[in-house]
């Protein structure tokens, strides 16, 4: 049997304890984050789990003003694309910045990686508890200014 070295649940648990985890490939040296079953660059399974520095640079962003079901109370919010120092990109919420005041000057800004729980009203996205709401293990990656 083939087994994940770092499934999403362990990735999220590490993230909640302040650690951004991913892979370094022993074949080509590239980094993969978030994890997948093999290297994002060369598809080798010969990878080791490593802790990332957790620092990135904003490459692009948007402000969501019409939200999906479950995210109504969050509007407006910023979703951004950021590149980690190790190379991979992440999609996350830019937090600590007023969505109504953000400008294109944010592109290129350095951020650190964190997390926030998924809004409790969101459905269909993971394990559902007896109360009908999702269990708190679903998280979103966040970016905050350094």
């Amino acid at each position: 049997m083939v087994t994940y070295k770092l499934p999403h649940k362990e990735f999220n648990e590490a993230l909640k304890s302040g650690k951004l985890m991913g892979f370094k490939c022993n074949s080509c040296g590239a980094y993969t984050c978030p994890p997948k079953i093999n290297c994002n660059e060369c598809a080798s399974m010969d990878m080791e789990v490593v802790e990332f520095k957790g620092r990135a640079e904003i490459k692009s962003y948007t402000i969501i003003r019409v939200s999906p079901e479950g995210f109504e109370s969050e509007v407006p919010y910023i979703v951004a694309l950021a590149q980690l120092e190790e190379g991979p990109n992440l999609v996350g919420n830019l937090v600590g910045v007023d969505p109504d005041k953000v400008t294109d000057e944010i592109i290129g800004i350095k951020v650190k990686i964190g997390w926030k729980p998924a809004p409790p009203e969101v459905k269909y996205c993971g394990p559902i508890g007896k109360d009908g709401k999702i269990k708190p293990e679903m998280v979103a990656i966040t970016f905050s200014l350094m």
Partner: peptide, 19 residues
Amino acid sequence: KFGPTEKSQVELFAEAAME
């Protein structure tokens, strides 16, 4: 293995497919 799991559908399929 079949039964309750904490892995995602993508992860489940990837393990089976890599095998």
